[in-house]
Design a protein around this nucleic acid. Structure first.
Lengths: 167, 167
DNA sequence: AGGGATGCCATGGGAATTCATGGAAATCAA
DNA sequence: TTGATTTCCATGAATTCCCATGGCATCCCT
């Protein structure tokens, strides 16, 4: 069942690295964790990537399983496989949401994206991202706007919906 | 239960060759050792390979069993079988994690990968690797960068996930 | 419509446990 | 005996667990 995350919101990060995740995101994580049963805490995998990435990407168990299967299908020993293993197996952190609906981000992950007091959560299909609020506002939003500016004034992004893959 | 290793981290190696392995890796080793029961120490196999390999590859009991079976299936006397036996049976070292969660790497293995004060652990599917931190950073990461540089600027490695095998 | 009562949600603090690491004593091997 | 392994114990730091609070929104009763 490919449930989707929706929405965005800001949450406090405390001194221990604990941060509430949006309640609606929890529902999706639960529904997408094959082992989850009412009353316990859903699992997820946080992919943090290499030094170039400045946000955390959170995968539901279903989503990460799909990725893992694709990696397994690549030829053993190929560079592609090695790269993807490094990213998804090496540069990732498996965890669970706690009983009170929080994620605990280890110091290492917080430092990686420079997270201090406030985290910004934003949905992205079957994953969601965690940003340092300031980074998102200063870098990511700017980038998006810049990109939009290059398109014709009256361009409607909806046009992408029906674009054929080979374009 | 093909559990997977995830994550990467640095650990000290002391003068006796003792090194803690990431706690999460221990959980996977335990779950993947058919003979393991709560309270005792999981087994694993360290494959160190020939002179060209500069890291140690650690297999869970389940993973090495799978490899062994595939080797057994090869025709007796074939070159393939001989080579794989040399690598996985000859150039490997069976051991266990100790009660405090450490591996003891014999001097021979440490010298092979030039390990001194710090080891770098990184997950790779159903195995994990142990590198000398400096080797990983200087050689392995450099190799990766080089490889990435050959790809188009805007290329996203994620594209490999959906690559068709015949490409 | 007013006024609880109920329940989920975001957040906080302290206690208890696990982890990574260091070192001394006991055991082994040549 | 001498160096190397293996056991056993010790400790600070990090992480997990457990319990507590205030704020909203919803539901219900009269």
């Amino acid at each position: 069942m490919a449930r989707r995350f929706r929405g965005e919101s800001h949450h406090k990060v405390d001194s221990k690295g604990r941060v509430s995740i949006p309640a609606s995101f929890r529902r999706v994580l639960e529904a997408s964790d094959p082992n989850w049963k009412s009353g316990d805490t859903p699992e997820l995998v946080i992919v943090y990537g290499d030094h170039r990435r400045n946000y955390l990407e959170c995968y539901t168990m279903e989503a990460i399983e799909e990725v893992d299967e694709k990696i397994d299908a690549l030829p053993r020993g190929s560079m592609e496989r090695k790269m993807l293993q490094r990213l998804f197996h090496g540069q990732s952190f498996p965890t669970t949401v706690d009983e009170t609906g929080r994620l605990v981000l280890p110091a290492k992950l917080r430092q990686k994206i420079n997270l201090e007091n406030e985290a910004f959560f934003i949905a992205a299909g079957d994953t969601f991202q965690i940003w340092k609020t300031e980074t998102y506002e200063e870098e990511e939003l700017a980038k998006t706007e810049e990109w939009l500016d290059e398109l014709p004034d009256d361009f409607d992004p909806l046009a992408f919906l029906d674009k054929r893959p080979e374009d």
